[in-house]
Simulated scan of single mutants.
Amino acid sequence: MDAQIGIEAITDKKGRARFVDVGREFAARLEHSVPQLRSEQLELVDPAKNPFFGHARAQLYIAHINGKPVGRISAHIDELALEMPPEQGFGPGTGMFGYLDADSEEIAAKLIDTAQDWLREQGMTRIVGPISMSIWEEPGLLVRGQDHPPIIMMGHHPAHYAQWVENAGFERVKTLYTYDLDITAEFSPLLQRVVKSGERNARITVRPVRKKEWDTEAATILEILNDAWSDNWGFVPLTADEVAYTGVKLKPIIHEDLNMIAEVDGKPVAFMLTFPDVNHVLSKINGKLMPFGWFHMLRWLRKPKGSDMRVPLMGVLREYQNSRMASQLAFMMITAIKKVATGKYGSTRGELGWILEDNQGMVAISDAIESEVNREYTIYAKSL
């Protein structure tokens, strides 16, 4: 490439807006991409609004050629991730990159070098990514599954980005899967017996969440999550501020009968969240609420008829995870949600994930319900 690549460090609100818009322009070029709400994307990179920045710092960059934006990247450090055991993926000296977009491999390499230089200046000795920007947001680079639209809160990237990242010296450290499920199909007789056995157990209650008590319910769910996922690769605990923030953000898409909490002897021990795929309506309004997109969004939120469903999160307290009851609770919650999704909302398809490749319990559950991997994301790492 003859033209010189310039790298701009973003330092203000206007710059963050341009950073988001560069990403939106790249997404618009990609087949099957779904435009997200710009206001939500702006909030994610705003230190004044996203509580992630209460324990993290970041530097955003935009690449230019002759004044034209041709790429972007983030470099960021999560202080809580630095405190995690290295065997769980992060640990001392580990910084991250995310939001990678580029017109060419040369531009991508320049952006990655710039992110690495910033992390070195901050004292980091290792880089992991892409993670945009928290592990709880959009981790991983899509390496398989570009042939169909992503579901709610999942990233969508060109297939060639993987080779560019690998050519920059990165190696794969973890694969994340999403699983596709025909929710109109009956479960096997064995699973049906497992569920019926649980339903006869007087100690077990599987109930919908209570939206009128959503703040309390969200805190309960995220308390279980922090315990259930604490030994998983890539785990970083959610803070109280993040719990509150997440609860507010999720509330508009929460339908009580699609989200379950399982109790044993009256104590909440497991949960399963299910979100109707808002991408269905975002694709119709082109990611814009104004002037009339808000009307379509509100109507869809009231009853997302025919929507695909995503199970982004589930968890069982660690004290139950090695017991037969753990899988029983999962199958009971899946069965209850599946019945409502098909009967009340007319849904035919569900998606589970992301799921770590070595999360044996969740992989076994996904296999047992005869779901199939439909997307694969890779997280890479490199020494600095």
Score class of each variant (00 low, 15 high):
256 E>K: 07
146 Q>T: 04
185 A>G: 02
232 N>M: 04
158 P>K: 12
231 D>N: 10
152 I>R: 01
185 A>L: 12
141 L>E: 03
183 I>V: 14
156 H>M: 11
183 I>F: 06
252 P>F: 08
130 P>D: 12
167 N>R: 08
198 G>V: 15
210 R>P: 00
222 L>E: 01
199 E>Q: 14
188 S>Q: 06
137 E>T: 09
219 A>W: 00
153 M>S: 05
222 L>V: 01
141 L>M: 14
231 D>T: 11
252 P>D: 08
188 S>V: 04
173 V>K: 14
146 Q>F: 03
173 V>H: 11
178 T>R: 07
249 K>N: 13
249 K>P: 00
255 H>N: 02
187 F>A: 14
139 P>M: 12
236 V>P: 02
185 A>W: 05
247 G>R: 02
203 R>N: 10
157 H>T: 05
229 W>A: 12
180 D>G: 06
136 W>H: 14
258 L>I: 10
170 F>R: 12
223 E>P: 00
165 V>E: 07
220 T>V: 09
207 R>L: 01
184 T>F: 08
192 Q>M: 13
136 W>V: 02
202 A>R: 15
197 S>L: 15
183 I>E: 03
196 K>I: 02
243 V>P: 04
130 P>E: 08
133 M>A: 06
171 E>R: 15
206 V>Q: 11
248 V>A: 14
151 I>Y: 07
248 V>S: 03
226 N>T: 08
251 K>V: 11
215 D>A: 14
208 P>F: 09
